[in-house]
Design a protein around this nucleic acid. Sequence first.
DNA 1: CTGTATGCAAAGCATTTGCATAATA
DNA 2: TATTATGCAAATGCTTTGCATACAG
Lengths: 142, 142
Amino acid sequence: MDKGFFKELFQEKRLRISHPRFLIYQELSSSEVPLSPRELYENLRRKKRRVGLTSIYRSLDLFESLGMAFKISKGSSVKYKSCKLKNHHHHIVCQSCGRVVEFECNDLTEWSKWVSESTGYKVTDHRVHFLGVCKTCTLSLP
Amino acid sequence: MDKGFFKELFQEKRLRISHPRFLIYQELSSSEVPLSPRELYENLRRKKRRVGLTSIYRSLDLFESLGMAFKISKGSSVKYKSCKLKNHHHHIVCQSCGRVVEFECNDLTEWSKWVSESTGYKVTDHRVHFLGVCKTCTLSLP
DNA sequence: CTGTATGCAAAGCATTTGCATAATA
DNA sequence: TATTATGCAAATGCTTTGCATACAG
C-alpha cells in the first residue's frame, strides 16, 4: 500500500484525503483478489471501520477514473482491484479464483496504426485484458 | 443480416429458432450502433413486434455466449452489438457516437507468451478493444 | 408429443440521488 | 471559514425468477 502515491495524486488533483477514502483505498490495496463494493463494505465493517456503502461506490468510481483501480465486470457482478503499476498497463484475470495480476503494456503503435487504417477511426486508447489460470490454480486443479 | 449463419449455428447447438429470438437477432443486426435491452425492446415495440423484455435479456445473453454479439459495459449502461465477423476478432468503439466496428485479431502469440512468462499464468484467452473517434465524428467535430 | 422458450408479474438487488451534517484544507 | 465529502434513507431501475402457456422440432 503506497500512501505517498495516494497523497501526492490527491493533492495534485485538489481532492480531499478524507478518512473514509483512505480506509477504502487501504482495504482495496491490501487485497490480493478483486472486491465488490459490498465486500469492501463488509470487510471494513468487520474491522469496526464503518464507512457508508454510498461512499464506497463514490470512491471506487473516483479511483477508477484516476487509474488507481481496475474495474472488472463479469456477468452482472462488478469488482475492483487496486493497481500497483502507475503507468499504462493491463491485467490478466484467473478464470478459476479471480486473482488479478498487472503487467506493462506492449508497444501497440503498429497495431493501432493498422486498426486506424482499416476502420477509418482515429485511435485514442485501448483496453486489453488476458484471461488465464494462475500458478496456484494450475497446480491445485486436475 | 445473415439468416443462414443464424440457422446453421442454432441447429448445430440444438437451440430452437423461435420467432422472438429471430426478431431480436434481426433487430440487433440491423443496427449500426449498439443497443441496450430496453432500446431493443422499444424498437421492436414501435414496429408492432411485441417481444417480452425478459426474452430480450435471455436472448442477448445467449447471443453473447455464442459469440454472435459483443457486450459493451460503459459505466452502468450495458449495450450489445451484433458481430458480423465469425472468427476471433475485436472492436473499436467511437467515444463520441458509440458506433462500433469490428476488425480481425492480430497475432498475439508472442505477447501471450511474454505475459505468461512474466505473470506465471497460463494464458487461455484475451479481450481487446480500442477506443477512438469514427470518421463521421472526426469530420463533424471541431 | 415432448421438451424448450416465452411472457407476465413479482421479487431481488445493485446503484444513484437528495439533503442535512461533518470534516478537510 | 468555505467548500467538499459523507452517510443515511428513499427512490430508481435494471435484471432475475417462478410458473403457466405457447410453440418448435
